[in-house]
Amino acid sequence: MIYVDNNATTRLAEEVAQALAEAYATGYLNPSSQHQLGQKARRRLDDARETILNLVGGEITKFQSDRLVFTSGGTEANNLALFGLGKPSDGQVIISAIEHPSISEAADQLRAQGTTVRQLPVDSNGVVQYEELGNWLTEPTRLVSVMLANNETGVLQPVSEIAAICRHRQVPLHVDAVQGIGKIPVNFRSLQASAMTISPHKFHGPRGIGALVLDDRVKLNPTMFGGSQQLAMRPGTESVELAIGFQKALELALTALPTAGLRMQSQRDRLETSLLGELGPEAMVINGAQALRLPHTSNLAFPGIDRQALVMALDMAGVACSTGSACASGSSEPSPTLIAMGLNEEVISGSIRLSLSRETTEEEIDKLVFHISNCVKRLRRR
């Protein structure tokens, strides 16, 4: 099976599996326990936390103390940011029109509770248009949340420009960086964000753990209660083993990044160019092609072809891909991201997502071109 659905999740790296096995074999106990065995677990957990924080550009010095809160994954971290950052009494929350469901649906809940939620629009390439943001921030604003890179199109967003506006107005900015880590250089301090979400299962790490990185000046209100773990910001017994797996996966991803990023971009470009050559530009559209994109993500539209029929045909041919966000894959509804981009109905209904990884081979790219072109031609004849 050729696996090109890495924006949904990645295969666990062998080195990470080994690190997890060793951690479980060590028999770490509850890191909140006061006895020696508990404190041994606490030291290892704190070491993993500090290492991860440093690797993503957080700082711990005598002048600065950024924090990293472990969660059950990216979805919980995004929810924690939306519900926990800023003063609850403050007014509106601003997100973009192309956020992951863990942001957009959390915002729907805030709206149902009486919070004003506004959406920044995007252009036809899926780039957030932030020109009106400064005017919007004249109203009391609790939080702005904009993703670093879109999970469906891979399009990079103008986070630095948005951060500058937010800093000027002293409004917290949260960045969902889940899809960016391990594919492009990401530095929390350089982003100038107040909070950032990361999740290791997107870079060959374990599922069931994620993190919210916090600037030292930001107050986070808990959304769960019942314990004092993680300064009571996210109570519950932490998994030392998953934190170790998280650390190992991040170390591997950042070590591989300089070569893996270039290789994935070369493979993606060859895939798109080859398919255009096989099918012709009138039969295939690359969504977001004119914008800067993650090196491994390709959102392709085949006008006149039903996206779900194509994904099923490819699955039968031995290719695992998707129509969009895995968190919405059970739905037959069209992509909110592509709708927000203003694309026509034929493009939206014929779009699939291909997402490579550092494990993708040249041979797999050649097979992908063969299977996709064959399936598209066969469906078109029908």
Results as ranks from 00 to 15, higher is better:
Val186Pro: 00
His204Ser: 13
Glu282Arg: 12
His35Arg: 10
His174Glu: 10
His296Ala: 14
Val347Leu: 11
Glu241Pro: 06
Pro140Val: 02
Gln179Trp: 00
Leu368Trp: 00
Ala106Trp: 06
Ala309Pro: 00
Arg358Gln: 15
Thr115Phe: 14
Ala163Asn: 02
Ala260Trp: 03
Gln308Gly: 01
Ser104Met: 11
Asp215Glu: 13
Asn187Tyr: 06
Ala320Gln: 12
Asp216Trp: 02
Val285Pro: 00
Trp136Cys: 01
Pro258Trp: 02
Thr255Gln: 14
His100Arg: 14
Ile162Leu: 02
Ser355His: 11
Arg353Lys: 14
Leu294Ile: 09
Thr360Phe: 13
Gly205Cys: 14
Val347Tyr: 08
Glu362Ala: 15
Ala243Met: 09
Val186Arg: 08
Leu379Glu: 04
Leu29Asp: 01
Ile305Lys: 13
Leu120Gly: 02
Arg44Tyr: 04
Val144Glu: 09
Ile209Thr: 09
Gly261Tyr: 00
Ala107Trp: 01
Glu238Ala: 15
Asp315Pro: 00
Gly57Ser: 08
Glu131Tyr: 06
Ala41Glu: 10
Ala195Arg: 03
Ile244Gly: 01
Val93Leu: 09
Gly324Thr: 07
Pro222Ile: 13
Ala193Lys: 08
Arg44Asp: 05
Leu310Pro: 04
Leu294Trp: 07
Glu345Gln: 14
Ile95Pro: 06
Lys367His: 07
Pro121Tyr: 01
Lys377Met: 11
Val171Gln: 07
Glu50Phe: 00
Gln113Tyr: 03
Thr337Asn: 15
Gly261Pro: 04
